[in-house]
Amino acid sequence: MEEPQRARSHTVTTTASSFAENFSTTSSSFAYDREFLRTLPGLLIVAEIVLGLLVWTLIAGTEYFRVPAFGWVMFVAVFYWVLTVFFLIIYITMTYTRIPQGLCFNGSAFVLYLSAAIVDASSVSPERDSHNFNSWAASSFFAFLVTICYAGNTYFSFIAWRSRTIQ
């Protein structure tokens, strides 16, 4: 004999979620490291920003285009000033934990700033307009100070990199 067919029951479960609920659980927030600016590398980055700003504003306020060597100094000073501000933001927000350390950045900044500081110092010559001379001499002084700051951060980046490779 044939058995009668039973009616099959289907259970459907639905869930509703809003975009806001999903967004709040999946988004990550940036951490803020207040103590970084109190460390020696943090203080060096702040010094690099302040002194680098002095280098390029002292040159930009003059007729630097009359001396072609100052074009190189301006390029290095503005380029690394912008990148250093960017790296300060990366360090303060602790994004560097997701991005490799800046040994290459600090090393290249040191080498190029050293060359720019030497070019800056060798291009300074007294002329009739003492405003240009004073600004160029001051920019040369600050370029060497920024070079020292980048050298310090290169050293600290090297030590941090070396401690990671030994482990």
Rank of each mutant, 00 (worst) to 15 (best):
E2V: 09
E3F: 15
P4T: 07
Q5K: 13
R8H: 03
R8P: 05
S9L: 11
S9W: 07
S9F: 05
T14K: 15
T14Y: 14
T14F: 14
S18W: 08
A20W: 01
A20T: 03
E21R: 06
N22G: 09
F23P: 01
T25D: 02
T26M: 09
S27M: 04
S27A: 01
S28I: 00
F30V: 10
E35W: 01
F36G: 00
T39H: 03
L40I: 04
L40N: 02
L43N: 05
I45Y: 06
V46D: 08
A47K: 07
A47C: 14
L51C: 11
L51N: 10
G52Q: 02
L53K: 03
L54E: 07
L58Y: 13
L58F: 15
A60R: 14
G61V: 05
G61K: 07
G61H: 05
E63D: 14
F65V: 15
F65P: 03
A69Y: 11
V73W: 00
V73G: 07
F75K: 09
V76T: 13
A77L: 09
W81L: 07
V82K: 01
I89S: 06
I89W: 13
I89H: 04
I90Y: 03
Y91W: 01
I92Y: 02
I92M: 00
M94A: 14
T97N: 05
N106P: 08
N106K: 04
G107S: 02
S108Q: 09
A109P: 10
L112K: 07
L112A: 15
L112S: 12
Y113T: 06
A116C: 07
I118W: 12
I118M: 08
A121Y: 04
A121C: 12
A121T: 11
S122G: 10
V124D: 05
S125A: 09
P126M: 11
R128M: 07
S130A: 12
S130M: 13
F133I: 01
F133V: 02
F133Y: 06
N134D: 14
N134Q: 13
S135M: 12
A137G: 03
S139G: 12
S139P: 12
S140Q: 13
F141M: 02
F141H: 04
F142M: 02
F144T: 06
L145M: 07
L145P: 00
L145R: 03
I148E: 06
I148W: 15
I148T: 04
Y150R: 02
A151H: 10
A151L: 15
N153K: 04
Y155E: 11
Y155D: 08
S157K: 01
I159T: 14
R162L: 12
S163L: 12
R164M: 10
R164W: 05
R164S: 11
I166P: 02
